[in-house]
Every structure is written in structure tokens, then in C-alpha cells.
């Protein structure tokens, strides 16, 4: 399978995940959005040397992956492009921050510790976002944004960018397939036609995006986002879910969970 068609398949797989009838998928999108945002805010606000504290925040993705029937290996495969970037952020800390500090009784460079916490913060934030995306469709996220009274144009942009990525991929696949059918036995695309292929791709997907926007407005779409999603209703469980996680984040943020648990056994 070509890279492009596997990218398209990936999008479909994620959309399949979004459509599953799981408890996580049934939670109100606004609750999941709020929960994810609050989690990330708590996470990044940790002291850069509080490695155990940051580690304890890993409970949130861990629990959801386990109870939400999500595959951690699929997730890692999908986010493998962004993970190295996330890890790169802290890579120079050990060089610049050479002050010694104690970690589990060992003397290590403070920069090394802050690198680890930065990486963990990045990875956990990516995991939390993945959980949101894997359980909530783009329409539902837009619906949540519209409840928050975000400007309609912003929500339209969100929806269109999402569609544009799909269109661009689909158009790219069509063009490269058409090319390879008429250039059999050739590996890749000859550099002489790169320019015209790339231009075509851009023009065609822009044209398509135009048509799609026309089709949306022909069916009554306007940027005042009146999109109402079927079957979404507030349930008591939604509020409970939000309350429990928010309390948990606040607790983890303010109390050293691992030390408390550890002291119970000592």
C-alpha cells in the first residue's frame, strides 16, 4: 500500500474508533474537551524537577487506555511522527543545567531530570489529545466549541481544515495513481514532473475545497454554527466524570501521590 493510501486508511481507522459504541464515546463532547484541556493545563504547570508528580499524571491516560478499550500500540504508531519532536524539546537541558540534584538517592544533573519531565509532559499531553480524538468525532468537537460560543468562523475553520487534509490526501492519491498507471515500472515520480504534479495537487484540492464549501452553503450552512448533533444529551454521568477527573488532577497537582502511597507501606 502506498504511503498516501495508508494515511487515508489511518484517517478512516480513527473515524471508526470515533464511531464505536463505547462508554468513552458516549460522554458529552464538551466534558471530554474540558477534561482534556484541564488535564493539559495541570500537567504543564508542574515544577520541572517534580518527576514523580508528573509521572503520577500518567494515571489519566493509563486508566482511559485500559478502560476505554483503546490500543496503546496503535496510538504510539499513529503519533510516532510527533513523539520525536516532543522529545527534542528538552534535549539540551542536561547540557545547560548542570547543577547536581538527588533522584531516588542518586546524584544526577538537574538538567537531566527536567529533560525527563519535559518529555513526559509532552508524551502525556499527546496521549490525552489522542484519547479525545479517538473517542470524539470532529463534528462533536465543533459542537462542543459552539456551546462555548466560540466565533462561528473559528469553528468553520476547524471543520474545513479537517476536511481539507482529507481532500488533499485523496486528491494526491488519485494523481499519483493516475501517474503510476501511465508510467509503469517507474519507481516514484520522475523529478521533471514534480513541479506540475505538486501544482496540480494544490489546485485540484483547492478547487475541491471550494466545491465542498459550495455544497455546504447550498445546504444551508452558514458560519453561525447551528450544527446540532443527534443523540447528544447531558447525563448525570457526564458531570460525575468531569468532577472526578478534575478533583483527581487537582489532587495529583497538589499532593505527591507516590510518596503518600509509599509512606503507607513503610
Amino acid at each position: 500500500m502506498s504511503k498516501i493510501s495508508s494515511a487515508i486508511t489511518e484517517i478512516h481507522r480513527i473515524e471508526d474508533l470515533q464511531k464505536r459504541d463505547q462508554w468513552l464515546n458516549r460522554i458529552h463532547p464538551l466534558v471530554k474537551l474540558a477534561c482534556t484541556c484541564f488535564y493539559i493545563v495541570c500537567l504543564v504547570s508542574f515544577n520541572p524537577y517534580d518527576i514523580l508528580g508528573v509521572l503520577s499524571m500518567g494515571l489519566y491516560p493509563l486508566i482511559l487506555f485500559m478502560t476505554g478499550d483503546l490500543s496503546i500500540t496503535d496510538c504510539l504508531r499513529r503519533v510516532r511522527i510527533v513523539l520525536p519532536l516532543v522529545c527534542l524539546i528538552g534535549i539540551f537541558n542536561p547540557i545547560f543545567d548542570r547543577a547536581p540534584m538527588l533522584l531516588f538517592g542518586f546524584a544526577v544533573r538537574a538538567g537531566f531530570v527536567s529533560m525527563l519531565t519535559l518529555i513526559m509532559k509532552g508524551v502525556f499531553a499527546v496521549l490525552a489529545s489522542y484519547i479525545l480524538i479517538a473517542s470524539t468525532s470532529i463534528e462533536n468537537i465543533c459542537y462542543a466549541l459552539s456551546i462555548l460560543h466560540l466565533p462561528g468562523i473559528l469553528i468553520t475553520e476547524t471543520l474545513l481544515i479537517y476536511r481539507y487534509v482529507g481532500l488533499l490526501l485523496a486528491e494526491t492519491e488519485r494523481i499519483t495513481q493516475a501517474y503510476s498507471l501511465r508510467a509503469p515500472g517507474q519507481k516514484g515520480v520522475h523529478f521533471k514532473v514534480w513541479g506540475s504534479l505538486a501544482g496540480q495537487m494544490l489546485l485540484r484540492s483547492m478547487d475541491r475545497a471550494n466545491d465542498v464549501f459550495a455544497s455546504m452553503s447550498l445546504r444551508g450552512y452558514s458560519s453561525d454554527f447551528r450544527y446540532r448533533k443527534s443523540g447528544i444529551r447531558w447525563r448525570a454521568f457526564d458531570l460525575l466524570y468531569l468532577a472526578v477527573w478534575c478533583c483527581a488532577f487537582l489532587f495529583l497537582r497538589n499532593f505527591p501521590l507516590f510518596e503518600i502511597v509509599g509512606s503507607l507501606f513503610v
Binding site: 473515524e15 464511531k19 468525532s137 470532529i138 463534528e139 476536511r163 485523496a170 475541491r208 466545491d211 465542498v212 459550495a214 455544497s215 455546504m216
Partner: peptide, 8 residues
């Protein structure tokens, strides 16, 4: 392809 744009 110009007409349809939702996921399902």
C-alpha cells in the same frame, strides 16, 4: 465528490 463532505 464535490457534493459529499461529512464523515458518513
Amino acid at each position: 465528490d464535490s457534493q459529499l463532505f461529512m464523515t458518513t
